[in-house]
Amino acid sequence: MKKLYLKNINQAIKIAQNNVYFDRLSKIYDTLPTGRCFGCTKCCMESVHTHFIEFLNIFHYLRENRQLYEKIFPQIIQYYFLEMVKKEHCPFLDEEGRCTIYEVRPLVCRMFGHLTEKEYEESYKNVLHQNIEIMKVFKNKYKIMLPENVVNYKIDYCRNFEVDKQMTKDQRQTLIDQMFTMESAFFMRGLITEDFIDTGLVSWFVYTVFDIEEAGDLRVKIMKEYLESGYSESLEEIMKKIKVCF
């Protein structure tokens, strides 16, 4: 299975509700020490890794807020197709830079500021290495040269975020392990497969409309068009026809 069909999402949400997974997810989130963010949104510049249980929680939240979902869904689609050629803020931000899903934002967003500067720099090195490898693939396989400002982009370590008590690496890993424990229930039932491992928040929503391979092929086509002219006719056609999956 390489697409998130609505019937499977609904079944997964029902399983999550029957097994109080959403409540367990909230308790995991509540484990993080409180902090104070000044809302500069400098860290909100990428589609963060999101566990399936978190996607279900966010999807359920947006379905309950349909007007919001219909408003931001086009932004999500556009962000996905241009993510690797145009650096933009997270599509879940509103016009004033506020997170529209703040109540149900993913664990990765919540843990920002809990890393030491040394840990943060090591994490960036890993991200940069991955970006360079991706750049090589696009160059060799698709003849696409990714912009250097996208490949090398770095979110600076935040010194303004005030946290009451910084979490240790082991404490953060414990929370991630708890996520995987819940996630295994959906793998066992075939509601998601290994194709969806390490999926970003934006991609989860894209895969409710497109098959993984179809989305990938379209992204290559759109990237080429955009890099050649700063505009993509294919993307414009998609934006005219795209519909929110409820």
Rank of each mutant, 00 (worst) to 15 (best):
L218P: 07
S229Q: 14
E194R: 12
H129T: 12
Y61D: 07
H129A: 10
K118P: 04
E103T: 15
F73K: 02
P147R: 04
F161M: 15
L201W: 03
I192Y: 01
R66T: 08
S232Q: 04
Q67H: 13
K143R: 08
K7C: 09
V202Q: 08
K221F: 03
V137I: 14
D177Q: 02
L6E: 02
Y226S: 04
N10K: 12
Y120W: 11
L107F: 10
K224N: 01
R110V: 03
F73H: 00
E162K: 13
L175G: 05
A16R: 02
M182C: 06
V104A: 07
M182P: 00
T116Q: 07
R66F: 04
S232I: 02
Y153C: 03
T168V: 00
F210T: 08
A12M: 01
H89I: 05
D217E: 12
L107A: 00
P33S: 05
M167E: 09
S123M: 15
G230R: 08
K42C: 03
N65L: 05
Y157P: 06
G190S: 03
C90L: 07
L68C: 10
K125L: 13
I77Y: 02
Q178C: 04
E64P: 05
Y29M: 05
E162A: 14
K141D: 11
Y29K: 09
P33F: 10
M145E: 15
L25H: 06
L191V: 03
Y120G: 13
A215Q: 02
I58P: 01
Y207S: 02
Q75G: 13
M179P: 07
I76W: 03
K241R: 13
M145S: 14
C43M: 07
T193E: 00
F138A: 00
Q178M: 06
L107G: 05
D177I: 13
K143Q: 13
N140T: 10
K7S: 10
